[in-house]
Structure formats: structure tokens, C-alpha cells
Write a protein that binds this DNA or RNA. Structure first.
Lengths: 338, 338
DNA sequence: GTGAAAGCGCTAACAA
DNA sequence: TTGTTAGCGCTTTCAC
């Protein structure tokens, strides 16, 4: 009776007439096993269909072989791509990926704490969790903050400020627009905030001021549609609209022309992210390209690095600020004929 | 010296002057503890900052408290929403979610096998993994197939055949179209296949045949754009194009008008999924609504059900085929004025 | 080259 | 009510 469930080291040991230590040596490819013995053990392993239990291994090694990623949710292309970036390096390292969507729930902190219990490292999107909590967690495992800044944590981000400033300048310098407005809520998350500040910086560079308060909405396309209707109702369109992300721009793009307001004729518009639909919209969307996939991949690499060999995780991770390049992508929606 | 790392049951036991069993009873809220003792233990727990190790718990209970989800990747809104559905029920049950993107890699089977080692149950998107492997895994843990059919597994899906047939019929009956064509590769994954067959069934219902071979492309918007150019180059547009999903339709929608071919004027088009952009596109997209979030949530519920109380998982899960309702959403792209 | 035994952090059956 | 002890499945000293 090898019992009902999956076979264990002990079952193999008994079957092969060796000790569990030897079985362990075989599964770990430890050289200190006589070829004949190894052969015999291997046969028992094959015969009984044995695979070492992940649970047992985890306990013994004190390692989950799992990376956690925390984000608001999976709405929109940005987060999906971020996760794919994380996943690509994790799977390559034989590490599983645990995703946690906080959805701005109040008990997010608790969920994150719980997640931390089940993972070896954490990648966290900025603005989802209290940084104090992260700092605490970072004491016992690698934590990498994505799209955020911190004095105590390792961070990976793109320079949203610079990107936004650049594309805004394009609007002013190349197209001569002077009445510009921002769409997106410039608070809460660090990303939209940086973009808004970049927008403002560009205006100041040219001695301009905002043509109206930022239109504070969520970051999905439907809010862009709402904003478009609101703009239209106000009557007087700005020369150009700088959106916190592409999604919002799509919402506007899909709505305003239907209201008889042409883009970029009556109002230019630019996005941020350069997601896969940006080059397909009509007019095609001028935006700031951000290497989202790389953002996730880089964060994952940093988070996993200390864990790589057997060695102790060596936390906390040294604070570090990795900035990935953005690039303005000129298409049609700014008024350029491409 | 309570040692360096996190405190364990033993540390608490020593500190409180009780046995580990008693500590365990306190953490599990076992009523069989004298109030005074409980109080004392609790104080030690608070003092040392003890939290039971997830690893230890997992080993003792033989449960990972983790649900795995397997899909091709996170490209496009469908999968993101599916994951969100899964996640919503998992987090509510205190279960973590492990996502695995196979990306049609050849070693997907191995990755899935590995994932299965770290989870209590699996939710698998149809077409990502060999069903024989799934059947085998299903012997030892709950496995739910999403958007696929199987004689041996529990499945959750929407009726893509019926949905596609209905929207196609709309094109024929209401708009009088007779030359229809399908966009999307009707092989590999079960979803597009069912939709293609539904499309064909509708044609047969009306004594029609395809106005051309299916345009076999991937399922992202960019392929829709390519298909649009191909159609335009062929010169003669069909009366209507039935797309395997909304993404493809968006690609066409974004491209064909720019080539001087109006939609729905010269060619009607319909999608499938009803993702969040469908109502925003211009023209707005007629499509088949599919409750993607619910699909994920339902699958997760079924997968987690047997695991709920302490009880043994009671596998294999009884084969079952849960079909969720689809609903045709008439908008403008079919030619209807809304 | 191999094995016995301790240990990873917890629960649970059994005694007391 | 509490403690002792034997697991859960594995690795890893340390002897032999």
C-alpha cells in the first residue's frame, strides 16, 4: 500500500530500497550517488510516477517560487501589458505569478499583506498601496515599485513628466496652440500626476497657462466620451487636449467628431502610452510611447535578482530609481499630416 | 535568542509558557482554550508580531489557497476581463490567483503541469492546453475549462455558435445582405471555431454560401487592419463582414473608411464580445454580448467549490457543461440607424 | 556513496 | 483545558 495520494520520497525510498536522502540526491542531481544506485532510484521514480511536492520543497527551501504583482485591476491595455512583462521574466525563471487587483478597495492593505505571505517578491504599481506598508514588507522580501517614486524602495518608471512636457511642447511649438487643457485626474496615482505636471511645465516654458481646469475623470475610454460631451457643451473648445492616457483620448476621438467637432481640425488631441490601438484610431493618435512591457519585465528582474541562486534574499533591496525612456510618437491627431 | 527571522509557533509557545498546540488553538480560534490562557498567548503573539506561516499552513492542510488560470496571454480585453472575473471570486474566498500565459509556447504543457503543483484548482481557457493533459490533472484537482467543450471536464462557456448565428441572421434578414464573409481563423481555439460554424449555419438557414474563404488572421486589432487592406485590394467588398471578435472589427473599422470605403455604407460589419470600446467606436459596433467577467467568475466558483470547507477536494469534478447567455447588441455598424 | 535523524512551521490525534 | 507527539514532504548535516 503506497497509500492513495501521490507518492512521496518515502515511497520511492522504500520501493528502491534506499534512504530518502538518496532519493533526494537523485532528484536534485546531486553527483554524490553511485551510478547504479541512481539508476535504480530513477526507475522507481518512473515506475511510481513521482514528482517532488512543490509544498515540501517550498517549506524546506523557505521559498515560494512565486512573484506577486499588485495593481488596481486589469482594466485597459496598460496593466495587461505590464503583467505580461512581469510574467515573461518570471516564467523564464520557473517562477509563478500571483496577481492581485486592489480595485481601490479599502482592505487592499490586508490583501497585500496576505499576498506577501505567499510570495518571494513583490512588484507593485504605484498608487495602489500605502508606501509605509510597502516599506515594511520590503524589510523581509524584495519589493519593486512600478511607476512611482520612493526614497526607500527600488523603483522602475518612465519619465512621465518629461514625456508629457515634450508632447505638449510639440503642440505649442509646431502647431502654435496656445489654449491647452488636460484630461485626467492629476492626483492619487503618481503616473497621471507626473504627466499633468509635465503638461504644466511645458505651458510655463512657453509662458502659457491652462485654458481651463483639468477635466477630472477616470482613466477609461468611456470617461473620455463623457469629457468630450462636456467639452462640447461648454461650447468653446481648447486648441488642444492633452490626455493622461490613450484610453481617454480614444473616448474623445470616438465622440467629438460625432458631435460635429472635427479632430484635429477644431481641436488637436494627444494621448499617453502608445497602446496597440493608437496607430489604428482615426485620426491616428499622437502620443507618448512608454515601454510598458519592459517596465514590467525590468521590475520583475530586479525583484527576482536577489532570489536567484539559493542564497539568502539579502533584503532590503537597495533603493534605486530606474527610469526607462519614453518617446513622442507623432501621428495625425496633433494636426501633423503623416 | 528567538532567532533572526519571523517568529514561529515555538517562539510564541516559549514566550507565553504554553505548548505549541495551545498557540495553534489560539490562532485558529479553537474554543477549547481557557480565556486566561488565550489572553496570555495573544499578548505574546502581539508582542513578537507573529503571523502563522502560509507555508506551514499549506503543508499541514495540504492546500495552497491558490487558484491557477491558464490562458494564451493577456492581449486584448477579453482575457483581462476573464481574469478579473476569476479574481473577484477568488479574493472573496481568500484565495490567490496565479496566471499563466502560454503564448502558444511549445512547452506550455510543462508550465501547466508545474502550475498545477502550486495550486488547488485550475481554470483553463479552451485551446491553450492539450485536453488529455487536463483530464489527467483533473484526476487530482478541480479543473474547469472555459470556452471549450469536453466530455470529461467541467466546462463553462457561452454559446458562440448561437450568438454568431443570430447576429449573422440579422445581417441577412434585416439588412438583406447575401454576400457575407468571416474574419478570423476558425481553427485552433474552440471559441472562434464555434463562431465560424454559427456564421455558416446562419448562411445555410437562408440558403446562402460564403462570399469567400474566411480571412484567417490573428485576433488582434492590427490583423483587422491588415484584413481591411486585403479586402480593399481585392476590389469587391462583401455585403457584410462577420468578425470573430470585436478587436478584429475595430481594426477594420479603423482602416477601411480611410481607404474610401464607407461602413456600413459599402460594407456592414459585426463583432463578437461587446467589449468596452464597442459602443464607442464610430460607427458604433453591432456585436454579440458575452458575459466575460461572469464566465471567469462562474468558472472560479465551480473550481473552488469542492475546496471550500476543509473537506477533501472530491475530485474529479463531475463533467458538466454550463452555458451562459449571449445577447445580440444592435448598434450602427450593421446598418441599423440607432 | 549512503543512511539516520533533525528540522522547515504548522495541525491534529491522543493522553493526561 | 492543556501538553506530547507524530506527521505533512522535503533537504541537509553528520556519521559511517
Amino acid at each position: 500500500m503506497a497509500s492513495s495520494g501521490r507518492p512521496t520520497v518515502r515511497d520511492i525510498a522504500r520501493h528502491a530500497g534506499v534512504s530518502v536522502a538518496t532519493v533526494s540526491r537523485v532528484t536534485r542531481d546531486d553527483p554524490k550517488v553511485a551510478p547504479a544506485t541512481r539508476e535504480r532510484v530513477q526507475q522507481s521514480i518512473d515506475a511510481l510516477g513521482y514528482t517532488p511536492s512543490a509544498l515540501g520543497l517550498s517549506l524546506a527551501y523557505q521559498r515560494h517560487h512565486t512573484l506577486g504583482i499588485v495593481l488596481p485591476g486589469l482594466g485597459g491595455p496598460y496593466f495587461a501589458e505590464l503583467v505580461q512583462g512581469v510574467e515573461s521574466v518570471a516564467v523564464a525563471a520557473g517562477i509563478a505569478v500571483n496577481v492581485l487587483g486592489t480595485h481601490f478597495r479599502p482592505d487592499a492593505a490586508q490583501a497585500v499583506t496576505q499576498l506577501a505571505q505567499r510570495t518571494d517578491a513583490l512588484v507593485v504599481q504605484g498608487g495602489t498601496v500605502d508606501q509605509a506598508l510597502l516599506a515594511e514588507i520590503a524589510q523581509s522580501m524584495p519589493v519593486v515599485l512600478v511607476a512611482g517614486t520612493s526614497d526607500h524602495l527600488a523603483t522602475v518608471r518612465t519619465d512621465g513628466h518629461a514625456g508629457s512636457r515634450e508632447v505638449t511642447s510639440h503642440l505649442v511649438e509646431v502647431h502654435g496652440h496656445r489654449r491647452l487643457r488636460f484630461l485626467g485626474a492629476p492626483d492619487g496615482s503618481p503616473d497621471p500626476t507626473a504627466r499633468y505636471h509635465g503638461f504644466r511645465a511645458a505651458l510655463e516654458d512657453h509662458g502659457l497657462t491652462e485654458a481651463g481646469a483639468p477635466l477630472r475623470f477616470g482613466f477609461e475610454a468611456k470617461y473620455g466620451a463623457i469629457a468630450a460631451r462636456e467639452l462640447d457643451a461648454e461650447g468653446d473648445l481648447p486648441d488642444a487636449l492633452v490626455c493622461a492616457n490613450d484610453e481617454l483620448a480614444f473616448g474623445v476621438l470616438a465622440t467629438l467628431p460625432g458631435l460635429g467637432r472635427s479632430i484635429p481640425g477644431e481641436m488637436a488631441i494627444v494621448g499617453f502610452d502608445d497602446n496597440s490601438l493608437a496607430g489604428l484610431a482615426s485620426p491616428t493618435l499622437t502620443t507618448v510611447h512608454q515601454p510598458t512591457f519592459e517596465l514590467g519585465a525590468t521590475a520583475a528582474r530586479i525583484a527576482l535578482e536577489p532570489t536567484r541562486d539559493g542564497a539568502a534574499p539579502a533584503v532590503p533591496l537597495p533603493p534605486d530609481d530606474r527610469v526607462l525612456e519614453t518617446r513622442t510618437v507623432i501621428r495625425e491627431s496633433c494636426g501633423c499630416a503623416v
